[in-house]
């Protein structure tokens, strides 16, 4: 995502990259980043906690007005849990990646049926 950020910014669009993987984002070095120390899959908050989700984005988006140096990263003041046990778990689980098939991976069969019928909303696929 940092590559997209750099490309858009070079075209004149100010960008802010959220991240929960600080080391990866530091390496790519996007113009502006906001780090949320949450488990992967929660880059903009916890599920069903709209007030927390709102506070996270307000803190993050405020960086547009406060950051002045390219390559800045703000550490957002939120914790997933008091004990941070999830971090040990993130490593103990090892490889949890699913096989890399090159066919569409639908959330459910009904989605597949609807997509294959072709009655999808505008611009369903934007391929190169």
């Amino acid at each position: 995502m940092g590559l997209v950020a750099r490309h858009a910014e070079a075209a004149g669009i100010p960008t802010l990259c959220m991240t929960s993987a600080r080391d990866i984002t530091r390496a790519v070095n996007p113009p502006r980043a906001a780090f949320l120390d949450f488990p992967l899959g929660h880059t903009t908050g916890k599920p069903h906690e709209p007030d927390l989700q709102r506070r996270i984005l307000v803190e993050a988006l405020s960086s547009f007005g406060t950051m002045t140096a390219p390559g800045s990263m703000k550490e957002l003041p939120f914790r997933w849990s008091e004990d941070e046990e999830w971090k040990a778990k993130a490593f103990a689980e090892g490889d949890d990646r699913t096989p890399r098939h090159d066919t569409p991976q639908y959330q459910n069969e009904e989605d597949r049926r609807r997509a294959e019928q072709g009655n999808s909303p505008s611009c369903p696929i934007c391929r190169s």
């Binding site: 098939h101 090159d102 066919t103 569409p104 997509a115 505008s122 611009c123 696929i125 934007c126």
Partner: peptide, 19 residues
């Protein structure tokens, strides 16, 4: 969005437009 073609898992560089 339900109704769109889902992503695949092998270097999928397509994107979807979400209204």
């Amino acid at each position: 969005v339900a109704g769109q073609v889902a992503f695949h898992y092998k270097d999928d560089i397509s994107f979807r437009e979400i209204p």
